[in-house]
Nucleic acid binder design. Structure first.
Lengths: 162, 162
DNA sequence: AAAATATACGTTATAATGTAACATTACTAT
DNA sequence: ATAGTAATGTTACATTATAACGTATATTTT
């Protein structure tokens, strides 16, 4: 079974990371944004795998690479990357994950596996439209959304059944 | 305009609070749970209004009432109340709010106003079913959901337009 | 009712996450 | 080159949450 949303460890993650960096470079270039060495590196670290990463994990990696870094170093980069839709924050985990569809303004929805820790971003229009409908009924003006579904992915279920 | 989900300050909130406490008492009695003085008081404080409250705000109130309390005091009560569906945690705010439909096991969805700070709990089956459909397509087994939509409620929009 | 057990709470210490404020460096544009 | 702006370094601290262990209170068993 090939599962692009919850990939196993065999998948060539270099591709994911490279593509994300490439897209980020394009995006920043087109919009006159400065994807500095630090920001680029933070993005790269966030894309180390498909699991959301904590800010202090990132900090630790930066420091271990010899860079002078403190919490604000990381948080500022994360803020920049979030502002421009290159990463997302997972509120239920206090962690950050690369955006699968950067460039487009979109409300992300996540399925998060408690087993492997991976977060899969989906963009289901029917969730969006249901929320939009409710908002309209309330007269509520939507600014941002946090849609995070936790549970167990297919692979981990299979693995857990022994 | 009467808005039960984003009530104004005139609404008789005593009713909301009383009802919530009453339901909690019933629920705990039926299930053999101990709604101790502390837990009851924490629930009452969470229901002080319709705005999610931070754990340390609760702690401060408990202490100011003369009770000996420390962070674990509050967090343990919050854990109990959450476990039994009497309150919800709002992950995007690190805050807690009374559950509007205790007793039933349900996936809550929230609209949170940046203006007045109030959180309205809704239970839209079409959001649930959209998520269930996506989960099924992924073979994902859902455990819990975090659905939080932030923005501005109708009343605050009206107030803001001057 | 007394002892045994389990549950809840008190207490201290600390972990984990995030921000404010100001100094310094590096880039950009004239 | 120089001034202006944006990014990063640095120190200090705020906020949210939990671990670990002791004490008290309630519940069950005898």
């Amino acid at each position: 079974m090939t599962d692009k949303l919850f990939p196993d460890r065999r998948h060539d993650h270099t591709v994911c990371r490279q593509q994300a960096l490439h897209q980020a470079e394009n995006y920043c270039h087109r919009h006159g944004l400065r994807l500095t060495t630090l920001r680029r590196r933070v993005l790269e670290l966030v894309w180390a795998d498909h699991q959301p990463v904590g800010a202090y994990d990132l900090l630790e990696k930066l420091v271990s690479e010899g860079r002078k870094a403190a919490p604000p170093t990381v948080y500022r980069s994360l803020d920049f990357l979030m502002q421009h839709g290159l990463i997302h924050r997972i509120a239920s985990l206090n962690a950050y994950v690369g955006c699968s569809h950067p460039g487009r303004d979109h409300a992300a929805q996540f399925f998060i596996c408690d087993g492997c820790g991976q977060a899969a971003e989906i963009g289901d229009p029917s969730i969006d439209s249901a929320i939009a409908r409710d908002a309209k009924a309330l007269g509520f003006s939507v600014d941002r959304q946090t849609i995070e579904v936790s549970g167990t992915c297919a692979r981990c279920q299979a693995a857990g059944e022994t």
